[in-house]
Structures are given as C-alpha cells and as structure tokens.
C-alpha cells in the first residue's frame, strides 16, 4: 500500500484529496489544525474507504516547532508501517490573513504557513519521498501571476497588503517546486504545483476580518466543489509515467509567471533554508 501525506487535510481541497486517494487504495496520512477536525476527517475518510488505512494528526504548521514535532512523530510510523517510503507529499495547507500577524519566530503568517511550512516539512520527509522516487505537490494558485518577490522585505512588514502577501506566497510555491525539480529530479523525485482555481472552501473565512470574510463568502459561491481540483492532485500522484512540466490546472499543464526563474528559485531556496535553519544538502 502506497502512502500519501497531505497537509491541511481536514477541510476543503485537502479533505477532498484525502477521500479521493483513500478510495483509490492509498494509505492517507492527513495533518490538520485541531484534534477535533482531525477526528472528524478521519471518520469521513474511513467511511469512504472502510478497508483502507488512514491516520490524522493535529499540528499548527505555521510554527516551525510544530513542523518538527509532527515530523518527529511521523518518522517512526513511516519507517515501521509504510516501509520507509512516502509516495507523495502534498503541501496543501494555506491560509489568508486580513492583517499583518506573526508566528512565534516573528515571521509573517501567510509566508510562514503557505510557504515555509511546506519547505520545512518537505526537507524533513525528503529521504522517504526519495526512497519511493515519489512526488511533492504544492497547492499554488494562478494568483501568483502579476507579482514579484519583495526581496528586501519578504515578510512585507513595511508595506503590508493581505492580497499581495497571499499572491507572493503562491509564487513562492512555484519557485520551490522548480528548485526541487532542479535539485532532486535526477534522483527520481518530481515536484508539481497546482492551481485549484476558485473553490468553495472556507479559506477566506478563517482568521480574517469581517470585510474579507464577507467578500470571500460571496466570491466562493462562484467556485467549484473541492472534489474538482482533487482530480488534478490525483492525476499528478497516480500516473505511472511522470506528467511533464510542473504547473497544473484541471489535469493540464499551464503556463506560469515569468518571475519563475532559476535565479529566483535558487535565491528563495537559500533564504528559506536560512529562515528555517536547515540545509537541504544534509539528506543523502
């Protein structure tokens, strides 16, 4: 049985991916924000595939301490139960904030949750993904277009704009994807970024102000059900042959922003290593 790890797996797109892949016969490990939402999601996924195996764990992934804790907890399970292999890691967790707010490290929350959390978790689980010649999939967005990385103030503390912070974090997802392919493609790893499109999730209603929440409540009515984008993740994770390219919408390769260059990708990777106090080269 192949193992898939999904973050942000207790609601919205993440939950839809978990259900879909569980029905396909994968062992699903889901990470969610609260113990309560994890138990609920576990029941739902189990109900859709009573014979399968699934495990849900709670962690506040915007805090690096929590990413390390969850990786420490998962490692023995992966080694003992999953044969030391992770077929796919889906860094799906993400959030929107109406205001500048920081994590314990003093990092801006959208940047920390939408980008750094996936960056750090991937580094911790990389040996197991490489062992499976597996895949890493990021939930990005088409809204990554039209912005560039603010290198001199990447947390946007000097000129905070919630939407800009969101868009920049989604551009980070693509840059990270690109650099993962450059570094580990020759070792059999493939990384992809998905644009889920406009989806009916609660992303804009969690930890936002009443204005943002109201606007999102109206906007999401025009979105599709989370099961629609879940098919793209399924496609990327389950094709025998590696799908070509690395940016997808609706199971099809898409064009991405011209900001997604090797230079920017390397620069973001180095900066992220510094902000997480890790070195990716450590794995072998």
């Amino acid at each position: 049985m192949k193992t898939i790890i999904i973050t942000g797996a207790t609601s919205g797109i993440g939950l839809a991916i978990a259900t879909t892949l569980a029905m396909d016969g994968y062992r699903v490990i889901g990470i969610g924000h609260s113990e309560q939402s994890c138990r609920k999601a576990e029941q739902l996924v189990h109900a859709s595939d009573p014979t399968g195996e699934c495990l849900f764990k709670a962690a506040d992934l915007m805090q690096q301490r929590e990413v390390h804790r969850i990786a420490d907890e998962l490692e023995p399970y992966i080694v003992q139960t999953c044969g030391g292999k992770v077929h796919a890691l889906i860094n799906n967790v993400g959030g929107v904030r109406s205001w500048y707010a920081t994590t314990e490290e003093g990092y801006e929350q959208q940047f920390a949750l939408n980008h750094l959390a996936g960056f750090l978790l991937t580094s911790r689980l990389l040996p197991y993904v490489l062992a499976a010649r597996g895949r890493v999939v990021m939930t990005s967005s088409n809204s990554h277009k039209g912005v560039s990385i603010h290198w001199d103030d990447i947390m946007l503390e000097r000129s905070y704009n919630p939407l800009l912070a969101y868009k920049q974090s989604k551009l980070c997802n693509l840059l990270f994807t690109k650099e993962l392919n450059s570094r580990y493609g020759s070792l059999g790893l493939r990384a992809y970024a998905v644009d889920p499109g406009l989806v009916q999730t609660d992303i804009g209603n969690k930890q936002t102000g009443s204005m943002v929440s109201l606007i999102w409540s109206i906007r999401k009515r025009f979105g599709v059900a989370p099961s629609i984008p879940a098919q793209t993740y399924r496609y990327l994770c389950t094709q025998q042959e590696y799908p070509s390219g690395f940016y997808y919408y609706g199971c099809k390769e898409q064009s991405y922003s011209h900001q997604v260059t090797d230079d920017n990708a390397r620069r973001l990777f180095a900066l992220s290593e510094r902000l997480c106090a890790i070195t990716y080269g450590d794995v072998s």
Partner: peptide, 8 residues
C-alpha cells in the same frame, strides 16, 4: 523561537 527568527 523569536530569538531564532530575529537572528536569522
């Protein structure tokens, strides 16, 4: 955590 974040 904060000291780490600032020093980095």
């Amino acid at each position: 955590s904060l000291r780490n974040g600032v020093e980095r």
